[in-house]
Design a protein around this nucleic acid. Sequence first.
DNA 1: GAGTGGTCTAGACCACCAA
DNA 2: TGGTGGTCTAGACCACTCA
Lengths: 244, 244
Amino acid sequence: MNKQLISPSYRPLYEQIKVLITQSLIAGEWRPGESIPSEFELASRYKVSQGTVRKAIDSLSAENILIRRQGKGTFVATHNADVIKLRFLRLTSVNGKKELLQNEFISCVKTKADAYIAKTLQIKMGAATIEVKRLLTFSGRPLIFDHIIVPAAPFKGLNGVKVEEWNGSMYRMYESQFGIRMIRAEERLKAVGADAATASALGLKEGYPLLSVERVSFTYGDKPMEWRLGLCLTDDHHYLSELE
Amino acid sequence: MNKQLISPSYRPLYEQIKVLITQSLIAGEWRPGESIPSEFELASRYKVSQGTVRKAIDSLSAENILIRRQGKGTFVATHNADVIKLRFLRLTSVNGKKELLQNEFISCVKTKADAYIAKTLQIKMGAATIEVKRLLTFSGRPLIFDHIIVPAAPFKGLNGVKVEEWNGSMYRMYESQFGIRMIRAEERLKAVGADAATASALGLKEGYPLLSVERVSFTYGDKPMEWRLGLCLTDDHHYLSELE
DNA sequence: GAGTGGTCTAGACCACCAA
DNA sequence: TGGTGGTCTAGACCACTCA
């Protein structure tokens, strides 16, 4: 039986199921950390075979949006459960030691999007944004100076949130306080010399080589929701990238 | 029917098929760029269903070891076919312009593995190695100073090869001249200040911030076969990393 | 033991490609 | 038109988890 609607562009059934599941995730029908219905339940809901649902879930699971656990169920991915490592943090100690990560909040102000931020976050130029600056400390040593910009609208009330309480993970906080889940990010790396402000924040001389990490994070539907520039001291740390 | 041999550790059939296919790749039964037999042919060869072969190929395809082309067949991945971009090169121009990449060969000498290289390449300390240094030029501007070390044994005769002829791609050359295919790599990134030799090669002042990219490349069976340190000028370029 | 995801099969049909 | 990979189904059985 062909369940395909007549349409000029062919789309596999399992991709359509994937979209339906994603929509339920956006709508908040299943919350982060919770389990979604079993494959057979979803199959009967969408009137397809279990194998087709399976393929849709496989794909979402490969994108780290869902997590499968044999014998238990399929769960909505969350930044909360990552006990040991922050999901998007690729910076690790050269000697592999475990480290205590701390967050020193510097400022949080309302601003307006300039041309670049507007384009990057797909908002209007001049739209309200919130800018956060903070210092990340690894085992007592300040290593990353972060500059974060998010659109103000979906993050109303961010000013009042105590970022410290979230153990340095903005994503955990976004998820819990605003229901916004980041599922993907792009990072662009360069080597730069420390500017005056960063140098003093990290206790370095101006011009000292730093790893500049520009990150754009995306929520469901590939919508950009956060811009971030991290300047990292990499004398005893490195950024790990796996190529396939 | 259960085709599983009685054994303490359970391994899915499709993983065993994957190993068999990989062994044929190592043995050179199918060469890079060539097509492998159809799913049904492999299924009958290994006495499993087409779906099981399919799952094994899916997995190899996800690892970029095989390439599927609907209507044509499944092909052995190669570094030769990547016309536009080098498979492991993540460095691109900030403005997105296409660039002409050139390779300036500096030196190629026989050396012996020190403790670190021995450990990294899983060879004995003091074992013969070959060290290559070269300069990579983007649109006429020297941007990367590469230091490459490979074990001498599998690369016998590398000294005589004219690296220039391979358009800057060592991997293309390894594949064609030595039958060694890199399928995966790990990169560790830092920001460093240019040392004297690198500064003069790239036309910079000493201490100028450079992106240090340390790469270990692996061939089949996760065997490390090349160590590489690239020092990159990233004023007009960035390294792209996608996080999921 | 009941329920979940994971594997494996067999067969039907579809989309794409080349001759 | 025939061959290839791609999708979809239905059903059987296995491995894991938890009560």
